[in-house]
Design a protein around this nucleic acid. Structure first.
Lengths: 162, 162
DNA sequence: AATAAATAGATATGACACATAACAATTATA
DNA sequence: TATAATTGTTATGTGTCATATCTATTTATT
């Protein structure tokens, strides 16, 4: 004869899993929310054959024509060695070109091609539209507040380490 | 004769890299802010020899003693195969045990050991304290708003796909 | 009851993100 | 000129995450 499930967290099997300890942490909420955003963005970029990193790189090159690989790596916060393969791919697909920087034969000046511009323009519209859907339940004010809070967190280290 | 740098984004080398296109996206802000949080959390957990995943697993087991691996995988949103090695590690370090579930010889009932509880209690305090530092520039109201916005985003898909 | 289907955990494997060390070519500095 | 620093590159390792497949057990179907 089995006892009916009256006593939680006993020897019996757990029925509903709680995560309220982790819910005390803002970081946990950020991770879960970001997972949703990331999944959505990945799906959105798939038709353009872009990933988050290649997309970020393409956008940043388009906005800063002529920048160097090291500058790009710094801007989108990835290591220079890891950028090389990304640039290789974008160049192979004729979305960008590696021009030479005039007075420095070590460096490359990155620029988008017309093809890259066209792809990016479509992709960007799609990304913005999908984000709009994802944020549909947030008012303009809530979005503004969210972004400024995230900025505060982003800038909350930057210093110390003597 | 070269033109002086009056026109941005010309043939000249880029001096300051702009990311204002990406800044239009909430997802971009989330990624950058989360990177900061993640870096801080990783450092915080290092003295306890825990990673974000092992920490999440330990917390959730502690809060839901007796839960199964598949339930845990579901709760902390990782795939079952990837959980196995995590559980292996926690068990090897005597932080948790794999008991048997009474009426199901397929499943394990996960529980923290006293050692695991002690480690977790210290780690949790440290994590909360570090988060407090990271969020120092946010008022209580801003934190509440941030969390509720993140929750809205987290729950904004969940449905469709017929 | 016998067979088929579903479930829990495990193993193997691959894709991708991310980090570090070391190198050649070039430029800047002492 | 000799030395140091920078740019892009190659090689390599680690961590996260996903999928397919396997076993042993349990549940459902007939």
């Amino acid at each position: 004869m089995k006892k009916p499930a009256s006593k939680p967290n006993a020897t019996k099997a757990v029925t509903k899993v709680s995560d309220s300890s982790l819910r005390r942490l803002v970081g946990y909420h950020m991770k879960r929310a970001f997972n949703v955003v990331q999944t959505d963005l990945t799906k959105t970029l798939k038709p353009f054959d872009l990933r988050m990193i290649t997309y970020s790189a393409l956008v940043t090159i388009s906005e800063n024509p002529g920048l160097r690989q090291s500058q790009l790596a710094d801007a989108i916060d990835i290591e220079r060695p890891n950028l090389v393969v990304i640039i290789d791919e974008l160049e192979r697909r004729d979305l960008i070109v590696r021009d030479r920087v005039p007075n420095d034969r070590r460096a490359y000046a990155l620029k988008t091609t017309p093809l890259g511009d066209r792809l990016l323009s479509k992709a960007f519209k799609s990304v913005v539209a999908h984000e709009e859907e994802l944020l549909a339940s947030l008012s303009p004010e809530e979005r503004t507040n969210l972004i400024s809070a995230l900025k505060l967190i982003e800038n909350s280290q930057k210093k110390d380490t003597p």
